[in-house]
Design a protein around this nucleic acid. Structure first.
Lengths: 198, 198
DNA sequence: GTCTATAGAGAGATAGAC
DNA sequence: GTCTATCTCTCTATAGAC
């Protein structure tokens, strides 16, 4: 592809990855076709197989892992700007609700929809989602320990907070309200306080 | 169909509904084919369109609503056998974890996988999932009020408990552990106690 | 590397015999 | 009501020209 001088061009591979990420998170794995990925990314169909020889599964695997890493980076950024871990997590829940509203309830968790679909149908992709969830959990549990939560309590509390977030994402998308996310945010704050975090 | 004398026969329509429910909850909407439903229910393919003239969408709609009603009945039964609302909800979370283990992490929420898929892609089915979630929420919030939770707090608390359950279902299926459900159960108990329920 | 055409399988849906 | 055959469409994947 020839770029207009001075216009930075997004590489084809990245365009494919980005378009696939959007489609997968909204429509799921089985519901997203590679033809649709090609048209949305403005890439020729053959390029998908050029850059992802493993086909749909390889593409989805990379989408899940890079999407998971991106979401983790977002979390880290929000926490870095917050005065405390408690406030940071509260800000993260608030931001999730705002994003839902701003995107007409389309942009929620980048991997949840696919995770539900592949958990019992595709073990390679199931592992990808498990790796991502584990990476989030480890980060969150570490932050909770930093905030003063007892080491033995940090992992269960992190699981509860992550479950609260994921469940609220699903309910908000289904009901088209942020009421569940608001309730989840309050519950999360309560659980964190109960856990003894500063 | 001719039944062996003395052998009660499950009606074809019910067999289709039941098989579709199992497949949809494991594989999702786009991932489940009507041919597969026909073979799993031991029904001829044409019978699907005979009993469900609206095709796949009508079938899925009925599956979601009847599955939701069945799950609600299960919840009611567990609560009826428990000495208190608190104990009943705890028993429900415990039962969810046992079912996950007993079914190799396949039987979780009857509608969550489809709910995630259709939230942004099929408004009729999205409404079906929303109606089911709302029915569960209303029941749960009512029980919390009965247990002594202030009326204004019951609905947010019910949302948080439902989100806790749904998020834990997803994490358990992805990670193939009941650790998230155990953590969710503890968190739920803590939230209920905080809310002032007996 | 880019792009098109097509193979081969499987989907949802329908028609019509029995 | 039961069951089969088939239509049309779309999917993943591949081959091969440029």
């Amino acid at each position: 592809m020839r770029a207009v001088p001075g216009t930075p061009t997004v590489p084809t591979r990245d365009r494919i990855l980005y378009a696939a990420a959007e489609l997968l998170r909204r429509q799921g794995y089985a519901g997203t076709g590679l033809k649709q990925v090609a048209s949305c990314s403005q890439a020729p169909f053959g390029s998908i197989y050029h850059f992802f020889p493993g086909g749909k599964e390889q593409l989805a695997d990379e989408v899940l892992r890079t999407g998971g890493a991106f979401f983790l980076a977002l979390y880290r950024q929000i926490l870095a700007e917050a005065p405390s871990v408690r406030d940071g997590i509260a800000a993260f829940f608030a931001g999730a609700g705002e994003t839902l509203r701003a995107t007409d309830f389309q942009d929620a968790c980048p991997i949840a929809t696919v995770a539900g679909e592949v958990a019992s149908t595709n073990d390679a992709l199931r592992r990808a989602t498990a790796d991502v969830f584990e990476s989030w959990l480890a980060e969150l549990a570490g932050d909770l320990v930093t905030a003063g939560v007892a080491a033995a309590d940090a992992r269960p509390l992190a699981f509860a907070l992550l479950a609260q977030l994921e469940g609220a994402f699903l309910l908000c998308r289904a009901l088209r309200t942020t009421e569940p996310m608001d309730a989840a945010a309050r519950a999360a704050a309560s659980l964190i306080a109960e856990g003894g975090a500063r």
